[in-house]
């Protein structure tokens, strides 16, 4: 394959940025959900009911 370093760097950057943002968003949603679970009164009630 010609120009391999340039191609590898491009694909590497793309995977890094894509996966980075996806994992960050995933963790952020999970963290927010756990905190909300802990403090939201309506949330607890909703869980007891269903």
């Amino acid at each position: 394959m010609t120009h391999l370093p340039y191609i590898a760097a491009s694909y590497g950057l793309a995977v890094l940025i894509g996966a980075g943002f996806a994992v960050d968003a995933w963790l952020r949603v999970g963290r927010a959900r756990r905190r909300l679970d802990a403090i939201d009164p309506r949330r607890t009630r909703g869980r007891d009911a269903g």
């Binding site: 394959m1 010609t2 120009h3 340039y6 191609i7 491009s10 950057l13 793309a14």
Partner: peptide
């Protein structure tokens, strides 16, 4: 050559 593959990103 293969450098064209960069356009897919």
């Amino acid at each position: 050559g293969d450098a064209v593959r960069i356009i897919y990103i």
